[in-house]
Design a protein around this nucleic acid. Structure first.
Length: 921
RNA sequence: AGGACUAUAGCUCAGUUGGUUAGAGCGCUACCUUGACAUGGUAGAGGUCCCCAGUUCGAAUCUGGGUAGUCCUACCA
């Protein structure tokens, strides 16, 4: 083995082998365990969020596979309608071609080409992460099988009346020319203005003042509303206004939606361009005048002057014109929420169109129940509240999109406007007895991407066919996802699955936090703080990183800033840390919080951890290879250290198991880290040396030590494998046979489980004693600046029989680990030399000072210790002096405090004696 | 406006049903190439557990109020 851990040499090699050998496929035996990957965009690339999420899922999958489950991790990608179409349109734009120039069919072909070209990127990257996905079952939301499922669902929901077509206001994206759902609209506060206009009363007796943030919509006003109990205007209700610039007369109506205290208490009503006004228009039977085109330019419903104007130009024109005729009352600064499309970033228009809707309220009911009755559980549980809150107030879901890339809606229209829904034109004709003389045209629109995603857990398993995979792997075991798509995806999956399968899509939803940069900011291209998981694995030099982060930046100023920032933060680029270190970092961050702040500094620590494990293995192999490790006989003996580390391994196994059961990967990784580094390496390997290197030690003891070294290492590798698959496999291959384990891969070995019988509390206590003595001596050595190489003669005083026994049995350990030339108890009649002392319980450990230790340094050290103890004693004395504590606290708590006080007082007494003796000198 | 979450060491975070000497990693200080590892070893420094009040014998932990921050949902023109 190399002296240092070199991940690049092992990772891709092992992944290829695993995949070729088919280890990722379900075994066909055992309890089914399945996870459906949240399908990434087929033309996308891996980001930190993916990396985190895949790491979690892979750990769960590998863990259950090793536990003997029939494990399926279903892989696949999403066609991501809008996102993908936009990318291809942008590529065409560079060539000066629009999708309309190409026409629908040719354009879709281009998209398929692009999918073929770039579609492998993310799946290649998933492999780099070590994800043990069953690639033989890879699916795509637009492949024939899944498309059939989509069609089936649409047709059936239509027949049940749960999908309908309707004309109403939708969120219209004027850049993308499509409707989008409420969830795809992001509203954020922006600085704007509030314009106050005078609307003259038709009777010539003055005017009303209305305020608006969108002056141009006044051209579509069909009423002015006041509050029904507003005395200022009560007498005007029923009268009309001469709507300026239009020549139209519009009524003054009363509606209690109006807030009397806002502005003047008069509101202009534009039913065709505002959701609240729309509702009011319906209540009052107002006209709806659509004044916009698909591009959000003004249409022919407005006076000639404004026709064809862009909406913001029209705004200015309307304001200027009203001002010119003296009807602009005033303009105020005003912050308002501006709705923008999450993809296009342009301001969304409420726009009157025909769209397809899903009756979400009906579907939501059983979906809510599935969570209420515990069939589905969220982890952490509080996300259920978020789910309920949204589901109980759910709005119908607009599922049609005016795009070309996606599942085309299976609906046909005749010239009379009748709607026919069916598999294809032929079946529609057949089902409805439509002759060839009746012209049919198919709906131009496609379905929201999330419509097909909602079917993901069962469509990937072959539905609507009644497959064995469905019977075996559905419902899936757990969904691993971020809270950002609980509404987009999780809720809709539950609705669709419960409706069509009469069972839940998954039993558990594990909701993890979102990966952010080290300061907690969202990672985004425009902020220039994006990290690519692959760069953390392979490393990247500074220049490449700068180029990558600033590529395709529209604003040169921004690019400059990002470059500066990047050069500062990554002056030396990013080192190659390897997949296992990256994954371990993810796990360590996977606690219950909502934000996961990713600091590159952390990954280095875990790369070092990999190196630690690597070198521990080197040490073990060095001592075990071609040696008797008792792999096939019982002729060995386990010493204290052996029994202790075996015991600690059991406890760690139990801890890891519990952590994984609770989706606490931070605790699982912590337990493994701690065991490997702080116990196995720091103590056990050191404790093995005095045995292996002692000529007086018996062969049976040496064999027992070697056996323990190799077997604990081997079990640790299995324990850690789900979290760090590559390094564990690489080492395991070299270690397994020495530990009496056989197999072609660690992947399918049994996961180690805690054996209570091997938890040895006596060994634990003895080792704690041993550590106490060693640490006590090391502490004196460190504090007193005694050269590390200087061997000490240590004396013990005041111990009981237990201490004496322990000394007898551990003398070799003590000498080696604390660097002692001798250690013995003082005889009864022997006076102790001047010494520096440490305490382990009642036992005093004396390091003679002669020639080694400065009196005043030791006095200072003692003073510090005494001070600390005095405080402790005071606190406990206070507690025990409080009669209500003694009376009311449980007896065992009181007893514990008494014991504590007694031993503290004793220790204090000894240290004070020590202090006095020293002072006399 | 309603709701959720967060506040613990310089930084990032653990802390299980109230009883711990409040922990870890990174960073920091001193010493050390000792035969697995300097991607290392040994020792050490560092905390008013956001603030106030309450419950309790006892609060980082429970309750109420406040402050600060983050986010979600809805939205007043």
């Amino acid at each position: 083995m190399d002296k240092t851990y070199q991940p690049a040499n092992i990772e891709t090699r092992w992944y290829q082998e695993w995949e070729e050998k088919g280890y990722f496929a379900p075994s066909g035996e055992g309890q089914p365990y399945s996870i459906m990957i949240p399908p990434p965009n087929v033309t996308g690339s891996l980001h930190m969020g993916h990396g985190f999420q895949e790491a979690i899922m892979d750990a769960l999958i590998r863990y259950h596979r090793m536990k003997g489950c029939n494990t399926l991790w279903q892989v696949g990608t999403d066609h991501a309608g809008i996102a993908t179409q936009m990318v291809v349109e942008r590529q065409l734009e560079v060539q000066g071609v629009s999708r309309h120039d190409l026409g629908r069919e040719a354009f879709i072909e281009k998209v398929w080409d692009w999918k073929a070209e770039s579609g492998g990127t993310i799946t290649r990257q998933l492999r780099r992460l070590g994800s043990s996905l069953d690639w033989s079952r890879e699916r795509f939301t637009m492949d024939p099988g899944l498309s059939a499922a989509v069609q089936e669902v649409f047709i059936q929901l239509y027949k049940e009346g749960l999908i309908y077509r309707g004309q109403r206001l939708v969120n219209w994206d004027p850049a993308l020319h499509t409707a989008i759902s409420d969830l795809e609209v992001i509203s954020e506060e922006e600085q704007g203005h509030l314009w106050h206009f005078k609307y003259p009363l038709s009777n010539g007796e003055g005017h009303l003042v209305v305020a608006t943030t969108r002056p141009e919509t006044m051209l579509g006003d069909t009423a002015v509303a006041v509050h029904p109990e507003d005395e200022r205007y009560a007498h005007l209700v029923g009268q009309t206004i001469d709507l300026p610039l239009t020549g139209r007369q519009i009524p003054i109506i009363a509606d209690d939606y109006v807030d009397r205290d806002f502005g003047t208490g008069c509101v202009k009503i534009t039913p065709a361009h505002d959701f609240n006004d729309y509702a009011m228009g319906q209540r009052h039977g107002l006209d709806m005048i659509n004044i916009l085109t698909d591009d959000a330019n003004l249409n022919d419903e407005v006076p000639e002057k404004y026709r064809g104007m862009e909406r913001f130009a029209a705004r200015k024109a309307v304001v200027d014109d009203l001002d010119a005729i003296g009807l602009l009352d005033k303009v105020e600064d005003h912050t308002l929420k501006v709705p923008r499309g999450d993809r296009s970033g342009v301001v969304i228009e409420p726009y009157l169109t025909n769209q397809w809707y899903v009756d979400a309220k009906t579907l939501a009911k059983p979906a809510i129940e599935a969570v209420e009755n515990g069939d589905i559980q969220f982890v952490p549980k509080n996300w259920e509240n978020t789910y309920f809150a949204w589901m109980r107030d759910i709005q119908d879901w607009c599922i049609s999109r005016q795009l070309w890339w996606g599942h085309r809606i299976p609906a046909w229209y005749d010239d009379a406007g009748n709607i026919y829904v069916g598999e294809d034109e032929a079946s529609v004709r057949a089902d409805n007895n439509l002759g060839d003389d009746i012209a049919l045209r198919q709906d131009e629109d496609v379905l929201d991407t999330w419509f097909s995603s909602a079917l993901w857990t069962f469509s990937t398993l072959g539905w609507p066919e009644d497959t064995e995979d469905l019977a075996t792997f559905h419902p899936s075991s757990v969904l691993v996802t971020g809270f950002d798509i609980i509404f987009f995806w999780v809720a809709r999956m539950i609705m669709m699955t419960v409706h069509f399968r009469k069972e839940v899509p998954f039993h558990t939803v594990y909701v993890h936090g979102l990966v952010r940069d080290s300061h907690g900011a969202k990672m985004s291209k425009s902020k220039g703080n994006v990290l690519d998981p692959i760069d953390l694995i392979d490393g990247i030099d500074l220049e490449s990183l700068v180029t990558k982060r600033t590529a395709g930046m529209m604003q040169p100023k921004l690019a400059k800033k990002i470059e500066k920032q990047t050069r500062k933060e990554f002056a030396d680029g990013i080192a190659a840390y390897g997949t296992d270190a990256l994954r371990f970092t993810y796990y360590s961050l996977a606690s219950t919080g909502r934000d996961i702040k990713f600091d590159v500094g952390r990954i280095e620590g875990f790369r070092n951890f990999c190196n630690k494990l690597w070198n521990a293995a080197r040490y073990v192999l060095m001592n075990c290879e071609e040696q008797d490790c008792a792999s096939d006989h019982d002729n060995y003996e386990l010493g204290l250290a052996d029994r202790w580390i075996i015991s600690r391994l059991q406890e760690t196994e139990a801890e890891v198991e519990k952590a994984i059961a609770n989706y606490r990967f931070d605790l699982a990784s912590q337990a493994i880290y701690d065991f490997v580094w702080n116990e196995y390496c720091d103590w056990y390997l050191e404790l093995s040396k005095p045995v292996l290197w002692d000529d007086n030690a018996s062969d049976a003891a040496k064999t027992g030590t070697r056996r323990t070294l190799i077997r604990v290492l081997e079990a640790t590798l299995r324990m850690a494998h789900p979290l760090m698959p590559f390094i564990t496999e690489e080492i395991w291959q070299k270690v397994a046979s020495l530990a009496g384990q056989f197999g072609s891969t660690i992947m399918t070995q049994a996961y180690p489980e805690c054996d209570d019988k091997r938890i040895d509390t006596f060994a634990n206590a003895d080792i704690e004693w041993l550590k106490g003595v060693i640490v006590g001596i090391r502490n004196i050595r460190g504090e007193m600046n005694i050269a590390p190489g200087k061997e000490l003669e240590v004396l013990l005083r005041n111990g009981d029989d237990n201490d004496k026994n322990r000394l007898d049995q551990n003398e070799q350990y003590l000498k080696k680990l604390a660097k002692l030339s001798s250690i013995r108890f003082l005889n009864e009649d022997e006076t102790a030399p001047v010494a520096s002392a440490a305490l382990v319980g009642d036992l005093e450990i004396l390091v003679p000072m002669a020639g080694l230790i400065d009196k005043y340094a030791e006095l200072a050290r003692l003073a510090k210790e005494i001070d600390k103890l005095e405080n402790d004693v005071k606190r406990v004395e206070g507690k025990l002096g409080n009669s209500s504590f003694v009376d009311r606290a449980p007896a065992e708590v009181v007893a514990k405090e008494r014991d504590k006080l007694a031993s503290q007082q004793q220790a204090l007494e000894k240290l004070r004696q020590q202090q006095q003796e020293l002072q006399k000198l």
